[in-house]
């Protein structure tokens, strides 16, 4: 019995769904040299971490390539390869924006919006998951949009014109 190696889990949900990957161990490309042709870019609103004292809206510039994307927020640009992405929006079929991240060298990670028809809140969910079932999420409620509006962004419009 003593030779048996147990796997540690914090809940039966984790046992069933698997453990989330340690995002601090993700290694990102240094540039876009392996991403192929540039397809298009878009500017959107993203939000810093969700506390009243720190919350701020930022502009995210995403560049979409054939095999990856780059995300630039606050002058910091990070590169994400297609192998770690759940999907790449080749034809603008969904909006690519950013959310905070703990991936090394990437304070911001690519995200998509779900529940955007809800009037109460939107959910930003991580797109760079390396196959992990556990998506990171950021809940953006009405007051967050109020913060964005106070900074001069168009209220409840994700895209920056």
């Amino acid at each position: 019995m003593s030779r048996v190696q147990f796997e540690n889990y914090s809940s039966m949900k984790e046992v069933k769904e698997g453990k989330s990957l340690d995002r601090t161990k993700f290694v990102l490309p240094k540039d876009d040299s392996s991403f192929g042709k540039k397809l298009f870019s878009e500017k959107t609103i993203c939000f810093t971490d969700y506390t009243t004292s720190k919350l701020a809206a930022k502009t995210c510039t995403a560049v979409i390539y054939e095999k990856g994307v780059s995300i630039e927020v606050n002058g910091h640009k990070s590169y994400f390869d297609a192998k770690g992405m759940d999907a790449i929006p080749f034809k603008k079929e969904f909006t690519l924006t950013a959310m905070p991240s703990e991936i090394p060298d990437a304070p911001w990670q690519p995200a998509v919006i779900i529940l955007e028809d809800e009037t109460d809140y939107w959910i930003y969910t991580s797109l760079y998951n390396k196959g992990d079932y556990h998506r990171q999420v950021q809940r953006i409620e009405g007051w967050c949009w109020g913060v964005a509006r106070a900074q001069g962004y168009k209220y409840k419009s994700l895209r920056v014109n």
Partner: peptide, 25 residues
Amino acid sequence: KMNKDMSSAVRFIRLTEADDTLDLS
């Protein structure tokens, strides 16, 4: 019986709040 079950088991699941390795001995 526990020894027998362990020899044929494919998963050893520990529910814990700790990070350490469980040593049954």
